[in-house]
Simulated scan of single mutants.
Amino acid sequence: MMEMEKYQFGYGCMRLPLLNADDPASFDYPLIEKLFDTYMERGFTYFDAAYTYHGYHCEEAVKKALVERHPRDSFELATKLPLRDFKDAEDMERIFNEQLKHCGVEYFDYYLLHNMGTNVYEKCRKYDAFGFAAKKKAEGKIRYLGMSFHDMPELLDEILENYGEMLDFVQLQINYVDWEQPNVQSRRCLEVANKYHKPVFVMEPCKGGTLVNLPEEAKKLMREYAPETSFASWAFRFAASQEGVVRVLSGMNTMEQVMDNTATFRDFRPITEEEMAVIRQVTEIIEKNTPIPCTACSYCTHGCPKGIAIPEYFALYNSISRTTGSFSSQAVYYNNISLKHGKASDCIGCRQCERACPQHLPITDYLKDVAAKFEAGSSFPTRK
C-alpha cells in the first residue's frame, strides 16, 4: 500500500479559467499561473490533468503554466489514459508518448486508467490496458498507478479482485449527495476500495459546483450553524473525513477558491456528528430541488452528432428548480447557447452520451424535459 500523508489536497485541471467560454483551449494563462503558484506557495503540490480535458489541450496548458515554470521535483503530476479513445495496444503506446510530450516530462508521478466502467472494461481486458500501464510503471515512466472509477460497487469489486495487485490507488466520486445515490453509490464504492486496502483519491467532492451553488434553504441551514464556513469547505471536509480517503481534488478557477480551499486543508478538521446532521438535511433539500444530477464534466458532448450543449442546458433546467430566478432570464441564456450549439430537441437518440456519462444518467430523456421546458410554444432562433 502506498505511503501517503492523509488529507492531501489536489488541484484538478478539468475546469481551468478561460478567456472565451465557448473555446475550451482559450486558456487565461496569466490567471492560471497565478492560481498554480499560490496553490504551491500554500504548501500543496499535486496537479491532476487528463488527455481529454479541455478539448484535448489540458496537458499542454499544464506544461506551459506549471512544468516549464517550476522545478520537476517541486510538484506531482497526474494524467490519465483515455479508455474511450484508444483503439488497440499500439494506440495506447502512441497516446502515452504523446502525453509525455504534451506535458513536457519524462515520467508521471501518478497515472490513471481514465473513467473506468462497464462501457470500457471489456475493451481494457481485451487489449490489457492494466498490463500496459503496469509495464510503463516498471520502466520508470509512472511512479504510482491507479484508475478513476465511475460505476457500480460490484464492478469495482471484480476489477480489484482481478487487477488490484497492479493498482496503487483508486479515484472515486465521493460527496454527500452521492453517498447513497443508486446511480453512483459513493459509500459502497469506498467500502470496496477499503476492503482491498486501496488508498482513495476523491473527485467531484462538490459535484461539479452543485454543493456550492445550493438552494437558498440549504444555504440558510449551513450559515446558521457555521456563518464563517464556506459551502465548499463543508463538502471537502465530508469527503476527506471518510475512512481510506487520502487525497481530495478541486477544480479551481478563481483566487477566492484557491485561498478558501487550501485554508480548509492547511488546518483540516474532520466533520463532526452535529455537522453530519446538518449535511443530511441539506442533502434532502438538494435532492428535492435538483431534478438532473449532472456534474458538468462534459464527457457526454464529445462526439455528439448534433453538437448539443448538454451540461449547459441541464444547468439551466436545474437553476429554475434550485433558485428563485425568473424563467425568462434562463430562457434567454438557453436561446443564446442554442445559436452556437444544437437544441435539446435536436437529439436523435443515439445515446452515445449515455454510454459516456460517468453518472449513468438517462440523458436523452432529460433532453426531452429540457426541450419541453425551454422550446415549447416559442419562436425559436436558428443557428447560422
Rank of each mutant, 00 (worst) to 15 (best):
A235M: 08
D267C: 10
G251D: 06
N253C: 04
T254Y: 15
V200T: 10
G209N: 11
V202T: 06
I174C: 06
E216K: 14
V212C: 14
E161N: 13
N213T: 02
A263S: 15
F268G: 01
G208V: 03
L214Q: 06
V170C: 09
F201A: 06
P270S: 10
P199D: 12
N253S: 15
Q185Y: 04
Q257M: 11
Q173V: 01
H197C: 06
Y225T: 00
M166K: 13
W234P: 03
V248L: 12
Q171W: 09
P215T: 02
F238P: 03
E224I: 00
N194K: 12
R237S: 13
R187C: 02
F201N: 04
N183K: 13
M252G: 01
K220G: 00
K220E: 15
P182H: 08
E191G: 00
G209W: 13
V192K: 10
R266G: 04
T229L: 14
K207W: 10
D267G: 04
V212Q: 14
R247Y: 12
A226M: 13
P199H: 11
A239V: 03
L214S: 03
Q242D: 09
N183S: 06
W179N: 01
E217C: 01
A232D: 11
L190F: 05
G209A: 11
R266N: 15
E216H: 09
N175H: 08
Y176M: 03
R188D: 04
E217N: 09
L190Y: 05
F265L: 11
E165S: 10
Y225V: 00
V170I: 07
L221T: 01
V200L: 13
Q242T: 02
N194G: 07
N183D: 06
E161M: 14
R247G: 01
V258C: 10
V202Y: 13
A218M: 13
C206S: 05
E228F: 10
P270F: 14
Q171Y: 09
F238I: 03
A226E: 15
A235K: 06
A239K: 07
V192G: 04
E228N: 12
E161P: 02
L172D: 04
G244T: 01
V202H: 11
F169H: 06
R223Q: 15
M255A: 04
G244S: 11
F231P: 05
S233K: 14
V202A: 05
E216D: 14
N183I: 00
A240Y: 07
N194E: 13
K207A: 10
Q181Y: 12
Y163I: 00
Q242N: 09
W179L: 03
A235F: 08
L211C: 05
R247K: 14
I174Q: 02
T264N: 14
V258E: 09
Y163P: 00
M255Y: 15
G208R: 08
A218S: 07
D168Y: 10
V200Y: 10
D168L: 05
A232P: 02
Q181W: 13
M259S: 08
S241N: 09
F231N: 06
D178C: 03
Y176F: 15
T262Q: 14
M259A: 13
K198A: 07
V202P: 04
Y163D: 12
G164F: 12
